[in-house]
């Protein structure tokens, strides 16, 4: 049986942990609002861009552009977006597990990874896949530059036919409570359902080919950028929920320990009393 002093120490330590987790919860709640706003403000651009691409591709046969070209090979590159820090429940491991399973199902056992965030790299270090690059602790202001470098690199490799496809894996923010692993094909670009509201012919300036070329690159870039914002919002959501339950659990543990402490203390008093009484009786 633990001594009273030991129990007291235990209670103190759990209380300190509880303070930390509840502070982290509040920090995440504040950051979540920001991250969600950023994500939501980025969506109009993304949806407009998507529309423009689909209008453009209606005027094109899709095989004409190299970024639409499909090939059967197995050389796969993955852009994985995870968080830098832990203490956010299964946020990173859920995504990594889902991705690993997906790759296994497709029998890809040596993909080339570009990973944003420390946690993803830690996970895939132990697998047979190669990590080409790992970006960690990127400040918000550097995000778009980082995305540009990553995307440019992959597009170049794809155009030179060094890789056959590029996957983008990230956690999609469904709600504060749920983040779903999302794995999508970034390259070759999946043909979008073409839509045309105006039956008149569209004028292009300078030329459709030139617009399409830069536009498609922008489109790929934007997908990664939005996925990153999505993932950040999810990270804070996940951390908030997991820290909330950690705080609750700590509270329960403190209650239990306190009860145990009181009982032990009472038992000690009782046994001491019995000793005194039986001592007095024997006189």
């Amino acid at each position: 049986m633990a001594s009273l002093k030991e129990i007291r120490k235990r209670i103190e330590s759990v209380k300190t942990t509880q303070k930390t987790t509840s502070a982290m919860k509040m920090v995440s709640a504040a950051k979540l609002k920001r991250a969600q706003d950023n994500f939501q403000e980025a969506t109009p651009y993304a949806s407009k861009l998507k529309r423009v691409v689909s209008v453009l591709s209606a005027n094109f046969s899709e095989e004409e552009h190299p970024l639409f070209a499909r090939s059967e090979g197995e050389r796969t590159a993955v852009i994985l977006i995870t968080s830098d820090r832990g203490l956010c429940g299964g946020f990173n491991s859920n995504l990594c597990k889902a991705l690993l399973k997906e790759l296994e199902e497709q029998k890809i056992d040596a993909a080339h990874f570009t990973i944003i965030g420390r946690k993803g790299a830690e996970y895939f270090k132990r697998t047979d896949h190669t990590i080409l690059q790992n970006y960690t602790s990127i400040p918000v202001t550097e995000q778009s530059v980082t995305v540009k470098t990553i995307v440019k690199d992959h597009i170049e490799k794809f155009e030179k036919n060094e890789i056959d496809r590029v996957y983008l894996a990230y956690s999609h923010f469904v709600s504060v409570l749920t983040q779903d692993p999302a794995i999508q094909t970034l390259l070759p670009i999946e043909p979008l359902p073409s839509e045309e509201l105006d039956e008149r012919e569209i004028l292009f300036e300078p030329s459709a080919e030139k617009i399409l070329d830069t536009l498609l690159k922008k489109y790929v870039e934007n997908q990664v950028a939005v996925a990153w914002l999505d993932s950040i919002a999810g990270e804070h959501g996940a951390r908030m929920t997991s820290m909330d339950s950690a705080t609750k659990n700590a509270g329960e543990l403190i209650d239990k320990l306190q009860l145990y402490y009181n009982r032990t203390r009472q038992a000690a008093i009782t046994s001491e009393l019995i000793e005194i009484i039986s001592g007095a009786e024997s006189l």
Binding site: V55, I202, L203
Partner: peptide, 9 residues
Amino acid sequence: SEHVPLMTT
């Protein structure tokens, strides 16, 4: 208004 459909950089 009533401009022809156009896409430009």
